[in-house]
């Protein structure tokens, strides 16, 4: 469903994403992991067609993001890292607007809005201004918005960040419930979350692909006869190893001219 090939994105002299390739197949739910600044959001912005890649390609459902952006945009529900809400609109007004620009047919709109209000558990706040909602509810508005039009692919950039543990659990359960019908790629730095809801993890570090494997395989890679590490330890060890391999010179090479 998502095919990323040799993707590089450069911001002036900073290489934010460096020749990253991966696939996400239909029906999968994949965790996209990395420290802050690793290049997760940048990769997602390219895949959703918000920014162009410097080199390399990204395809969604067989359509090249650069060649046929409209086809791609029609098939993706995207929750950006900063939830894109209009504080002066109520939840229903907001969803009505997004449904319109996503091309949901006029007749189907009402039902579609009800459907996502239900899914994201927003019914009780439907007439409230989105600007007055708590962070948790705003995040759900962001997810509800992504679900409008029932796109086959969901790209969720840190859907649980900034939420309290209770809210995080709610959002996690929501995502798990969505997994049956959508191909999902979600970024996070909450490793427990990945262990719980994703079978597979793609890890990027300093813009480069560090690992792409089933979570259980990643854990068994670092297993010793004495003990099985948890995913957090695996992640830590993996990144430390990478940093050690990279000489100081290689570190600065990330900031290639």
């Amino acid at each position: 469903m998502i095919e990323v090939r040799e993707l590089t994105k450069r911001y002036r002299d900073l290489v934010a994403v460096d020749r990253v390739s991966f696939n996400v197949t239909k029906g999968e739910i994949v965790g996209f992991l990395g420290l802050n600044g690793a290049g997760k959001s940048t990769t997602m912005k390219v895949v959703t067609g918000y920014i162009p890649a410097t080199t390399g390609t990204a395809k969604v459902a067989g359509f090249d993001v650069f060649e046929e952006p409209m086809e791609v945009k029609r098939r993706i529900g995207y929750l950006p890292e900063i939830v894109p809400i209009y504080p002066d609109l109520t939840v229903t007004e907001y969803l009505d607007f997004v449904a319109s620009i996503k091309g949901v047919a006029k007749k189907a709109k009402k039902g579609e809005i009800e459907r996502v209000l239900e899914k994201a558990q927003l019914k009780d706040v439907r007439e409230r201004l989105t600007g007055n909602l708590s962070k948790g509810f705003q995040q759900r508005c962001g997810i509800a918005q992504a679900l409008l039009g029932n796109p086959p692919v969901l790209i969720l950039d840190e859907p649980t960040s900034g939420l309290d543990p209770q809210q995080q659990r709610n959002v996690r359960e929501l995502i798990q419930a969505l997994a049956a019908e959508h191909t999902i790629m979600l970024s996070t730095h909450n490793l427990a979350e990945v262990e719980q809801i994703c079978k597979r993890a793609i890890i990027i570090h300093r813009g480069k692909l560090a690992a792409d494997d089933l979570v259980q395989n990643l854990i068994s890679r670092y297993k010793t006869p004495e003990r099985t590490p948890n995913f957090y330890e695996v992640f830590d060890t993996m990144l430390n190893d990478l940093d050690r391999q990279a000489t100081p010179a290689a570190n600065t090479a990330v900031r290639a001219a």
Binding site: K45, T48, G49, Y50, M70, K73, R74, I76, Y78, P80, I82, P84, I85, Y86, P87, V98, I101, K102, G103, Q145
Partner: peptide, 13 residues
């Protein structure tokens, strides 16, 4: 400023 532009630019508009 509020990054809602990202929403507009990633829908088929």
């Amino acid at each position: 400023r509020t990054k809602t532009m990202q929403l507009l630019m990633t829908t088929p508009v």
